[in-house]
Write a protein that binds this DNA or RNA. Structure first.
Length: 272
DNA sequence: CGCTGACCCTGACGGC
DNA sequence: TGCCGTCAGGGTCAGC
């Protein structure tokens, strides 16, 4: 479920319910996530401590307390919601309980997500090599073009690589490449600079629009009624294999690139 | 260093 | 109705 826009929407949804509140307890029902959850460490660090703020880095959520951080990743199927003692569902693995009764509850059926603790965020192995934020000041076409030189990997893999730029998942990589007129299997190093200018612009535009949409359809974090669905309306190629391109009526093609489903219009998207 | 493919896990869905 | 194969929005890691 979570692409960058949903992680950002999750942040905005839970922030007012947890920031400046004190943790009373942390309950872990299932500690087997992407890495084992360091249960006693997290309990010790958070018990009777305040959550000072919450930030996002790529698709990671960072809950700060006493200058240290709880690092949360939602993986493929994770979600966070505000709940209460009841309403525990299958795969609700972790509760962070606050002294006013609020519970931040983590659910993750596939368990590809993670809960880790860091006392030195800048040097944490999950964060230290991450590329720039696509919505930050250091991301643009020139940056992408420079890093792409001599790279033979398909451009879709290139922009999904979090060391290059964070937060571009399978959906938005496909959509941004369509909007830019670039065939996803093109070797990154063969795509011209002017195309990278367009691509960087499209990535920013699409992510911003999705955050805006996510904010309007995914805002109820209290009842747990946070069904996504915003993206389906505006998708041009993702999941549309075999259907007509909205622009030229050519049949959208499907192709596996780097073990991930990809879709593109053979007419609108150029091979470089 | 860059690239490829295996792998982590559960659930939904389509074909038989 | 059930069984089986395939696929899913994430990312790491070993091996070449």
């Amino acid at each position: 479920m979570p692409e960058l826009p949903e992680v950002e929407t999750t942040l905005r949804g839970i922030e007012p319910h947890i920031v400046s509140k004190s943790v009373s307890s942390v309950i872990v029902r299932q500690k087997s996530l992407r890495w084992p959850v360091p249960v006693s460490l997290i309990q010790k660090k958070l018990k009777n401590k305040r959550i000072d703020n919450i930030k996002r880095r790529g698709k990671y959520l960072l809950l700060e307390s006493s200058k240290e951080h709880l690092i949360i990743h939602l993986g493929m199927s994770g979600s966070l919601r505000i709940s209460d003692k009841e309403h525990i569902k299958k795969h609700d693995h972790i509760d962070i309980c606050f002294n006013d009764g609020t519970i931040l509850r983590y659910c993750d059926p596939r368990r590809f997500g993670c809960f880790l603790w860091s006392d030195d965020l800048d040097n944490h192995f999950l964060l230290k090599d991450l590329g720039p934020e696509p919505l930050g000041n250091h991301f643009n076409g020139e940056y992408l073009f420079k890093l792409s030189k001599k790279r033979k990997t398909p451009i879709k893999n290139f922009i999904m690589n979090s060391k290059i730029v964070v937060g571009v998942g399978n959906i938005y990589a496909s959509e941004a490449l369509y909007a830019s007129g670039i065939k996803p299997s093109s070797q990154a190093g063969r795509v011209p600079r002017n195309k990278y200018e367009i691509l960087a612009h499209e990535i920013v535009t699409i992510l911003k629009k999705s955050i805006k949409d996510g904010g309007t359809t995914l805002r109820d974090f209290v009842s747990g009624n946070n069904e996504p669905g915003y993206f389906k309306q505006s998708l041009k190629v993702y999941g549309r294999e075999g259907k007509e391109c909205y622009a030229c009526k050519t049949i959208i093609k499907g192709q596996r690139i780097g073990q991930r489903a990809s879709a593109y219009c053979p007419n609108c998207q150029t091979r470089f």
